[in-house]
Design a protein around this nucleic acid. Sequence first.
DNA 1: TTCTAGTTCGTTTTT
DNA 2: CGAACTAGAA
Length: 875
Amino acid sequence: MTEPSKLPHRGVPEHQPAAGGIAARARAAAGPQYLSGLNPEQREAVETLDGPVLVLAGAGTGKTRVLTTRIAHILSQGRARPHEILSVTFTNKAAREMKLRLGQMLGQAVEGMPWLGTFHSIGGRILRFHAELVQLKSNFTVLDVDDQVRLLKQLLQAESIDDKRWPARMLAGLIDGWKNRGLTPSQVPSGEAAMFGNGKGGKLYASYQERLKILNAADFGDLLLENIRLFRENPDVLRQYQNRFKFILVDEYQDTNVAQYLWLRLLSQAPSRPGVPLSAIIPGAMDPAVIPGRAAGVNPESGDKEDSARDSGFAPAGAPRNDAGNPVAQPSPPKNICCVGDDDQSIYGWRGAEVDNILRFEHDFPGAKVIRLERNYRSTGHILAAASHLIAHNEGRLGKTLRTEDVDGEKVTVTGSWDSEEEARAIGEEIEELQRAGENLNEVAILVRASFQMREFEDRFVTLGLPYRVIGGPRFYERAEIRDALAYLRVINSPADDLAFERIVNVPKRGLGDATVQLLHDHARKRRMPLFEAARAVVETDELKPKARGSLRDLILQFDRWRAQREVTAHTELAEIVLDESGYTEMWQKDRSADAASRLDNLKELVRSMEEFENLQGFLEHISLVMDRDGGAEDEAVSLMTLHSAKGLEFDNVFLPGWEEGLFPSQRTLDEQGRAGLEEERRLAHVGLTRARRRAKLYFATNRRIHGTWSTTIPSRFLDELPSANVEITESKGGSGWGGAGGYGPSRFDNVESFGSSYATPGWQRAQANRNRGQAGRSGQARGGFEEGQSSFSGSRSDAFSGGGFSRNKRGPLVIEGELVAKSTGTVSEFSLDDRVFHQKFGYGHVVKIDGNKLTIAFEKAGEKKVVDSFVERV
DNA sequence: TTCTAGTTCGTTTTT
DNA sequence: CGAACTAGAA
């Protein structure tokens, strides 16, 4: 421990001068206070202000600290004023965090940093200033995925393409992918464009863009792509921003996609002299001869004949040309851009992130200074060693060696379980043990590869009464009720918002179904008017049935009234009025389902959040970009999330279940991305391990239910790749809740034994051996059908039950089996509606529906479930 | 138009 | 095994 100020097991030290000791005071004397406590590399990263800088910041090395300190440094050195610094992150959370820390550091609010934000929010901001230059109005709507898909469905219909064979969602994905790669419709390689909808992919993309302009809307991808187009077509505008931004900082650079890269590239060029054509700048951003994967985005007009060459990654090596086909001039030297990232944490390749961006930084930004942060202030020795050793199996990386001065700590544990349920049980018990030992549950996290793994843990925790919180999941503004409410407001704000109108015409139900909407569409198309105006016209005719006509007229009148009220009513109040008068609130109040209450809460929250904005317009402009999930949840609880959403977080105790071939690494990724996919999965594993400060615990199960059927699995190859010196194989403690027996087949033990000795052998080789053993032990698999609950009643299962699979099962008490079989034939329920009941697994709830012996119960914690009456008792 | 019974098909997710 | 969607009846 040579760093006296370091706090063991904590994140990067927060240096209070008082706690710093002599050394810290000495350092403080050497420079401004905010620099004190930085290690030499961090300090270099902060102080190297001129020219391009790449900071390779390994996990837990103080990345955010460097970024914020650097901004503080720039400001305090007087090198730039706050509005001259462009600082981009990927998530709102990261942006918020930076603002917060910056505020602390500078001792005041950072309202003066208007250009600190996400790529999308900044892109959107710039776009609004110059909307007319890209055929939009400054109040354009940002579409969510739902709207996008709905719009595409219409286009598919217009082209009479079977949306069974060519789902709109798929097209949305393709378009999104193209936009991520910086490709406008004319730039998409025709081979690729033709793959969708019998060659109509490209045409659809083009008409989609056209429709967006008509609707005065942009999707997320447009916020960047249209920005790039804006810059390309308007050199003066670009120059304005180039001049403004004296410094550019980028967080999580390894996650940037091509569009983001291009955007940064444009902005980071030194301002060109007036008169120098833009073509001198742009194409230099990409050099097809060197960046095969990007070639498609480079030579937009270079002709379709080269498609095959591009697709195969071998673009012609001729001089790059710009949009006009002119030869490329030497690009001006890039200015002060500082990118921070970690190639070992690039886990969004499947979404268009280009690891290449970070790998090729030095090439892209000549003269770049590369600074490595390798001192880890987070994890103990064993954990760090395990993570480093694992990631070292990757080839495509810049290479960093993380080190810590912390103690070795506990070894990383690997535990095998019979099946996923036992895995959940084992983890549950270990967590309770930690809790008894005085650990704070906020310092416990379970990180899973796929979200379906979460349910098992939730069930278990509800049973145990262990508080937990699921991180991630649907965002606040993605929830149906929020989108519906927003749609109402959108229609009020801009009557031409067809997508919003369509969303709510029949929500709540007004008897205005497909037929009516279709009619409106026809009208709108013929007269080239928005749906809302079409509706106004149609109501005057007798084309609609009286009932539909009446309610449509009512709806229009309501909107007219609301729009009038808008002038005289506060926007929050207006929102309440709209939600009430439209019957939307009532719809949820009448809804008997379990989450209706929380939806109403969300609506209240939405209205509350509107207060932060001056008016409806301002609210709508920002809402789709910055609205985050509800924060809340201050209570002590275990965190449950996917590995992806764990990036950037840290916990004392991290549980990593499901390390099995097929699940992790995910088979699908392997199939689709091959080796690159495997490496990304490995980085994911690395991210998982490095989330842990003191304890990292890995698990694998021998049997797991995938898509409803049980299958035998084999331990993940990543387990084999861990250094045995830092790993401990432990027994599963999960056997208890099942009345003893808890034994596993010998197979599991063999697994564990062989694990320690064979970690040098290729994983899959051992996998073969294990597979055989696994099948031998399959007799126990009937267990799958043994799960309690509704499933038991869905078919001919009684044969399976009596068939004897069970008597061989050592793990379940036969009593339950007998009970299950016996009760399942009963017909008359002894329960009545609204009875309060208790269920072993789901806890308390009340009966909302009775169907023979099947009850639908709204559980207080687990939500609404169908269960068999024999599994609950009245209380 | 809407409700309900059948079918399908299963990563990861920001903005 | 279930959520999420789709095709027919009320």
